[in-house]
């Protein structure tokens, strides 16, 4: 058995956990505002696709990043429009967003790139890896912490900002109030819909970032349905992290580790299919694990 835990694994954990973390933070806002959001998956997929499209059109990775965020936010607004304005069933609308994302990205991929399955062009330059001065020279730590895309560093900053926003900012207070009791919040003059739209927009932006990290950061390519359930794993991270930014960070790290381990074990003695299952199995186990404790309080 080769050593699984080493510096490279941790570095790849950091890369791979970022999409989960960002999508989960996005979902945290909608969840705190009282909207059950299963559309994280679709919003991310839009981000991934239009990130690549942006790079392809302009040659600029940052414009790709901007387009990723913009497209995911537009989709999030569509989701919000149907859920908040028309009071449609959030689960069904969310699933529809996911189906739309899969269909529309594949459809548009054929139109723009003329290919099916996936698009990869080695000439496309994705987001550069940022070398942090001084820290990058520290052995081990430098390898883990330095040399990631800007999205990775942004994600950590966003955790802090999200915490301050939710628990220290008046609008964050409103958001939590709306999620807990929309009627009460409304009776105090808080604009419930406005706050919910805000949560949806934040969610879209973060999912756009998450999607971009998948498609224009690690490698610059788009693969049909490349989010592969990450939106749902992010949903689990929210549950596991009790919709708290710092706890979500921890939960996402756990799932990132599962992804990294899965990647590492590829080509080893264990058949690839079992290795590929790892993140999903880990997610389900974690999900059950989190609920083991509350069970005891409700005796049967």
């Amino acid at each position: 058995m080769p050593a699984i835990f080493d510096v490279a694994l941790l570095a790849s954990t950091i890369r791979l956990f970022t999409p989960i973390l960002l999508a989960a933070l996005g979902g945290m806002f909608t969840s705190r505002a009282g909207i059950f959001n299963v559309a994280l998956e679709g919003m991310m997929l839009f981000g991934s696709f239009f990130g690549v499209v942006g790079v392809f059109w302009t040659g600029s990775a940052y414009i790709g990043l901007a387009l990723a965020v913009l497209s995911a936010t537009i989709v999030a607004l569509i989701f919000g429009f149907f859920v908040i304005q028309f009071k449609g069933d959030a689960t069904i609308i969310g699933l529809a967003i996911n189906i739309l994302a899969l269909g529309l990205t594949t459809y548009t991929m054929r139109l723009i790139f003329g290919v099916t399955g996936g698009y990869y062009d080695p000439n496309l330059q994705g987001l550069p890896n940022i070398t942090i001065p001084i820290i990058s020279d520290i052995p081990l730590l430098g390898q883990v912490v330095s040399g990631h895309s800007i999205i990775v560093y942004a994600a950590f900053v966003i955790v802090g900002l999200a915490y301050i926003f939710l628990f220290r900012h008046p609008v964050g207070l409103h958001l939590r109030a709306v999620g807990e009791n929309p009627q009460a919040a409304g009776s105090l003059g808080i604009h419930v819909k406005r706050v919910q739209y805000l949560s949806v927009i934040l969610c879209g932006m973060l999912c756009g970032l998450a999607g971009a990290q998948l498609s224009i950061s690690i490698v610059t390519q788009f693969v049909e349905g490349m989010t592969a359930g990450r939106g749902f794993i992010a949903l689990v991270a929210i549950m596991f992290g009790q919709a708290h930014p710092v706890k979500i960070l921890g939960a996402s790290l756990l799932f990132g580790l599962a992804y990294a381990a899965s990647l590492r074990l590829q080509g080893g003695a264990i058949p690839t299919q079992f290795v590929a299952m790892l993140p999903y199995v880990a997610t389900i186990l974690v999900l059950i694990g989190t609920r083991l404790r509350p069970r005891q309080s409700s005796t049967t």
Binding site: L173, H174, E180, N181, G189, I190
Partner: peptide, 23 residues
């Protein structure tokens, strides 16, 4: 129309919060 997870002070001021440096 109260929010049980928030404190009394938060509930009192919700919707018209006193702020200091934006927070």
């Amino acid at each position: 129309m109260l929010l049980s997870s928030l404190s009394v002070a938060e509930n009192l001021t919700l919707g018209k919060e006193p702020t200091r440096r934006g927070l």
